[in-house]
């Protein structure tokens, strides 16, 4: 008679092979996640022996800190800008790539290229593209008689320059996701519409868009989540400047933690970021549930 039926050889083997994963995720996700929550109620510069309890002070300081509110607002502007660009241009690109054109596979390959290129490399290349004197963009503008702006050095359009760069990087990636969505739409819908005399625009409005809705929701939420975490581009291209005009949430967090060593305060910033992303992810699940039912 087995003593405990559930504690059999299969269960033992399973838990044994999961042990490394449990240790790993416990150490590098579980512990840091809990510890940063603990830290967010403390003040600590890593020099003092132990963190000092300050209660909710870090969180209340957030609301009063103009720098934080500013980077939060700028993150939101960046996110809305990039997401609008991505929906329009990625869907447009995907529609093009769905056509029967010669060498279409080559085009698909090229459009995806920026997605495998590092953000640091892209950032540096675009700093050089945006160079007011010798960069490609302003030289080209000069060729047609326009005096180009200062781009990254201009407080009013530095954030826009970052949006352009991020859009260049991500449009091809999201176009690939849209393309997969488009190819999942059954051809018979289009054939039926054509027989009924529907034009290209009507087919797009009445068939493509509604059936693509889950993909659109997925792309929007993914884009928002990624944009809220933008860091490398900002670090490399502007370091948050000029005059703080491109400081975004994660850059602010990085500075607070690793320039000023305000570990507790930075952890509170991190938790705000987590809550934002968590809510967005839940919204994604909800939106998916609804579109799938509809």
């Amino acid at each position: 008679m087995p003593r405990f039926r559930w504690w059999n050889e299969e269960t033992r083997f399973a838990w044994l092979s999961l042990l490394p994963a449990l240790v790993f995720f416990g150490t590098f996700v579980g512990f840091p996640f809990a510890y940063s929550f603990y830290l967010s109620f403390h003040e600590w510069n890593m020099m003092a022996e132990t963190p000092t309890w300050v209660g909710l002070e870090n969180y209340t300081a957030l609301i009063r800190e103009p720098e934080f509110l500013r980077s939060l607002a700028q993150t939101a502007v960046f996110t809305v800008g990039i997401t609008a660009c991505i929906v329009v241009f990625s869907l447009g690109t995907a529609l093009l790539l769905d056509q029967k054109l010669r060498w279409i596979k080559l085009y698909r390959t090229i459009f995806y290229l920026p997605a495998v290129t590092s953000l640091v490399a892209i950032g540096i290349v675009w700093v050089w593209m945006f160079d007011p004197q010798h960069g490609l963009i302003n030289q080209a503008l000069r060729g047609v008689g326009i005096d180009g702006p200062l781009w990254l050095a201009d407080t009013r359009i530095a954030l826009l320059s970052l949006i352009i760069t991020a859009a260049w990087r991500n449009v091809g990636y999201f176009a690939t996701i849209f393309l997969a969505g488009l190819q999942g739409i059954d051809n018979t819908y289009y054939e039926a519409a054509r027989i009924d005399g529907a034009g290209a625009w009507a087919s797009f409005r009445r068939i493509t868009l509604p059936l693509l809705k889950p993909t659109i929701v997925f792309v929007v939420v993914m884009s928002v989540i990624l944009s809220f975490q933008v860091f490398a581009l900002v670090y490399v291209m502007t370091s948050g400047g000029p005059a703080g005009s491109t400081s975004v949430l994660v850059f602010y967090l990085y500075q607070q933690a690793f320039t000023y060593f305000r570990m507790g305060y930075a952890s509170a910033v991190g938790y705000v970021l987590f809550v934002i992303i968590f809510v967005l992810t839940l919204l994604q699940f909800k939106a998916f549930g609804r579109t799938v039912e509809a």
Binding site: M46, Q229, L253
Partner: peptide, 12 residues
């Protein structure tokens, strides 16, 4: 997000 766990991981 990895930025949330980054500080304690650094401390580790």
């Amino acid at each position: 997000p990895s930025q949330v766990t980054m500080i304690p991981t650094f401390i580790l």
